[in-house]
Write a protein that binds this DNA or RNA. Structure first.
Lengths: 240, 240
DNA sequence: AACTTTGTCAAACGCTTGTTTTACTTTGAT
DNA sequence: ATCAAAGTAAAACAAGCGTTTGACAAAGTT
């Protein structure tokens, strides 16, 4: 047993420290170079560990990669958990008004952008997620089933309430996806938009400004789509 | 000199054929595995060539990669050249009405989606471009200076005309970027949206439907933003 | 204090990487 | 027919890859 006291958090054992440092270094390198490009030697060096530590703690490079993906899902829920909880509560109540759903949708997007997409300290997560979309590995299932799909379904539900549409129709799913694209595009084309703007990053007040515009676009779009006629084909097309 | 006549196109020499096949195979493999993950042996095999052919025709793997990026820029102009020309003509005339600009913007986005983003035969281009955004190599400059920036500036100009805003303000640039995100997100999150929709691809009538929704979102957004007040900070913030 | 568990480290293992070399065949002009 | 140029192909090269090994140190238990 451990004999030391700690009022902050249980003092991590030597092994836990090594494990954590390896995970952090791996996230950074995997997101920059991909699961193929990042080498175990580079990861170990960045984590201040020996190469053999990876096999020792995670079994193999591939299992380390999967552990990183698990960590990403955890980080998403950690940063967005409160908004998730609100959305789930609203959904469970069953009789949410369009105005309530729209307000929550705005909170959702604003925070998704401000807490995740604009932050350079979590930018690595976005890069790795995009990489998995480009060339899915077996680990994609982790990100999709526990990260993307629950988030997407929640947004579709809220959009459905606002627009008075069934959230399971392909029209609702695609419109929601289009809305999301505005926010996520900043992760995907980060380098290009920064050059266009002549900015070095998108943090601080700059992030707030972008969130302002994003929020306004969302509001305008939802308002304009409320009266729009349903799509002739897609409004009757439902997923299983 | 070549002694054969050809009414179609100059019969490519043996070397030109090898060069072309290498470029095609390289695009496919680079976009799937990245400039690091794709090996010269795999590229040569896919092109039906010997490994040494890459060094022989392109000098090195890196120069082959740059040749692929050049090809991408050419393909973009080849597929979008007519719409580009229209936009340039409108810009040169100098006194375009908001309605004209909006119509052209609609054409631009619709065709960008239908001709590029939805086509599986050019999907490799999209994947490679996203890869360069995630981790820019020296070759990024080719894509940015001759591909992304001219396109982005053109769209900003049109959005500026529609909304009555200076195309060089950061507000216009960011709003244009948000608009673009809706279309480009389908390249970036292809795997996830296909799973959500239960579809295998986004081609044929399905692409038309998505283009319908995209076009409608664009229209709603531009209409709603016309009366909106300028952003307090960003509307006065101009790029060099 | 003796002993087991846990963690660290350098070296070595096969294997694959991009590139170069060398010998060879095909091509097109004289 | 001859010959230089253009193109092909297999083998060899050093360097780097993920993983395994075995010796060793530190920590925890009895």
């Amino acid at each position: 047993m451990k004999g030391t006291f700690s009022f902050l958090e249980p003092a991590p054992s030597r092994g836990d420290q090594a494990r954590t440092r390896l995970l952090a270094a791996a996230l950074e390198l995997f997101s920059d170079l991909g699961p193929h490009g990042a080498t175990v030697r580079a990861i170990a060096r960045a984590a201040g560990q020996n190469v053999a530590a990876i096999a020792y703690y995670f079994g193999s490079k591939e299992k380390l990669y999967e552990a990183v993906l698990e960590g990403i899902v955890g980080e998403l829920h950690g940063r967005m958990g409160d908004v998730y909880a609100e959305a789930h509560a609203l959904r469970a109540r069953g009789h949410a008004t369009p105005a309530e759903a729209e307000a929550l949708l705005d909170t959702f997007f604003r925070n998704l952008y401000l807490r995740m997409l604009s932050r350079s300290e979590v930018a690595a997560i976005g890069r790795l997620v995009v990489r998995e979309q480009l060339k899915p590995t077996p680990g994609f299932e982790i990100l999709y089933a526990r990260g993307f799909r629950p988030l997407h379904e929640m947004l579709c539900h809220l959009v459905g309430v606002v627009l008075g549409m069934d959230p399971k129709t392909r029209e609702t799913i695609l419109r929601t996806h289009l809305l999301m694209g505005q926010a996520y595009f900043f992760t995907m084309s980060r380098e290009a938009i920064l050059r266009r703007l002549g900015w070095k990053n998108l943090e601080g007040e700059k992030a707030e400004w972008v969130a302002d515009l994003l929020s306004e676009h969302l509001k305008v779009l939802l308002a304009g789509l409320k009266g729009a006629p349903p799509h002739p084909q897609l409004s009757h097309s439902k997923i299983a």
